[in-house]
Amino acid sequence: MARYFIGKFVSLLFSLFILATVTFFLMKAIPGDPFTAEKAVPPEILAKLNAFYGLDKPIWQQYITYLQNLLNFDLGMSMRSQYQTVSGIIADSFIYSLQLGLIAVVVSVIIGVALGLLAALYYRKWIDTAAMIVAVLGVSVPSFVVAAFIQEWIGNKLDLLNPAGLNGPADFIMPVIALSALPVAFIARLTRSSMLEVLTADFVKTAKSKGLRQQVIIIRHALRNGIMPVVTYLGPMTANVVTGSVIVEQIFGIPGLGPQFVTSVSNRDYTLIMGITLFYAVILMIARLLTDIAYAFIDPRIELTNRKEAA
């Protein structure tokens, strides 16, 4: 077990190193720099700025310096937002994305699993059809359509909620709906197909032959075995939702990480691009690690080891 976590940690560091390297050089390959603006900056000031941020040095030297700072957990200063550190910007905006994302994850899992379960239990009945229509809609309607639609109707026309901003608990409702639409649909479909398979498994028949109640059989015996595909999907999905959706956050005017990332790229804010990219990678890898742990927790046949051969 300890070896497993050490192994995971080493591979995390290695992945981060590769990612940092590739991002660094790709970023430098984009034309323009942080100080290119509509209004020309006097060359003396430009030279001073470049010197301040170390941009006057050869690229390999910049790279080495960046890695050295990284080892000290220093992501540097933002090149466009004055007096702000990259970690500060990430921390400030991540808090919104995280809150929103976690709520969306919980909502998606509850509604998605419930829909999928109902569809499987009432296979080929109208409940199944209705649930799958919802699922197809959720998968195929893009989140910006959902977001704009509910903003227009619930926010403007019916005037039930504030169309934008994040000032109270009620303001979470619409962004969460927009963020959850796709995951709900996806989880519902995963749950349905996997439950349909599990419900015909021999051990479910065994459970029935013991005289257990239908609800007990479904919850205790079937669901635990049928939930695995959802857990698999949950890792990357959580990372995705928690790090902020550019579109949804933009539409509802939420100062989350998503819009920050987009602005950082168009601003060529080198340190911020690097910082958010690495941050996203860390979150993704943590989510994957949690998925692995959840696997081992749910299915006793899975052991957390580094060995290649199956136990």
């Binding site: 065994t206 205790r220 015996h221 635990r224």
Partner: peptide, 23 residues
């Protein structure tokens, strides 16, 4: 339900699949 398992017990063909792997 009160007959199954109590008055009548059943054994199935394939022991590899008739037990719940997660319990």
């Amino acid at each position: 339900e009160s007959v199954r398992g109590k008055d009548i017990g059943m054994i199935f063909q394939d022991p590899m699949t008739s037990l719940n792997p997660t319990m």
